[in-house]
């Protein structure tokens, strides 16, 4: 009996130490926060001074050209795209070009490729107000929408899929000119059953 108590006590201490070490690690999202969230003097929607619905193509190109993180800027009829260089946060997926869609000579939406997991983004932005999900062939498509931030997180995953792979998936961030809606968000992720 005494041995049991001793073992239990030792295990409690060990697990407590593990949890303390895990919890004690500093969680810094400063890089992500300063890169993705609008500065105080730029009204939402705003990313790096570019405001979907307001900023013209020329203004957006100028911001990209003077930035420390964009290169090889290409403008076509439908969109502006660029490759990444130098000064960008680690959370940017540098293998994928950034994209801004154009409508009526203005920026309509911005897509920033990131390598941040869905779960971390939900921790950062909180629970979305809306979500949409659909199944197509062997894929599940999921969108979480934050109307106050003008943001949509969008991901497409291959079936079969479990809840861990869903939260670890890396969505794209779309910054829209207008807030969007979908189905009311529920914490019950029943759409994974579609797989």
């Amino acid at each position: 009996m005494r041995l049991l108590f001793k073992s239990a006590f030792a295990l409690v201490i060990v697990f407590m130490s593990f949890i303390s070490v895990i919890r004690a690690r500093p969680y810094s999202d400063n890089d992500f926060r300063s890169f993705f969230l609008p500065p105080e003097d730029c009204l939402k929607p705003c990313w790096q001074g570019i405001r979907p619905g307001n900023t013209t193509i020329n203004e957006a190109v100028m911001i990209l050209e003077t930035s420390a993180w964009a290169q090889n800027i290409v403008v076509d009829k439908r969109k502006i795209s660029w490759l990444w260089r130098g000064n960008h946060p680690e959370s940017v997926d540098t293998d994928t070009p950034g994209t801004m869609y154009i409508s009526n000579n203005r920026i309509a939406a911005i897509i920033v490729p990131i390598n941040v997991a869905f779960g971390d983004l939900q921790l950062f932005f909180g629970q979305p107000r809306w979500r949409s999900a659909g199944k197509f062939n062997h894929n599940v498509s999921v969108q979480f929408t934050y109307p106050h931030e003008y943001l949509t997180l969008s991901v497409r995953l291959e079936c079969p899929m479990n809840i861990v792979s869903f939260w670890n998936a890396q969505p794209e961030i779309v910054i829209n000119s207008m807030p969007a809606a979908g189905m009311p968000y529920t914490t019950n992720i029943e759409f994974l059953k579609n797989c």
């Binding site: 994209t99 869609y101 939406a109 897509i111 969108q143 969008s154 794209e172 779309v174 829209n176």
Partner: peptide, 8 residues
């Protein structure tokens, strides 16, 4: 508005 790399 079709502003996504997916067809949505």
């Amino acid at each position: 508005e079709n502003y996504s790399t997916f067809s949505n």
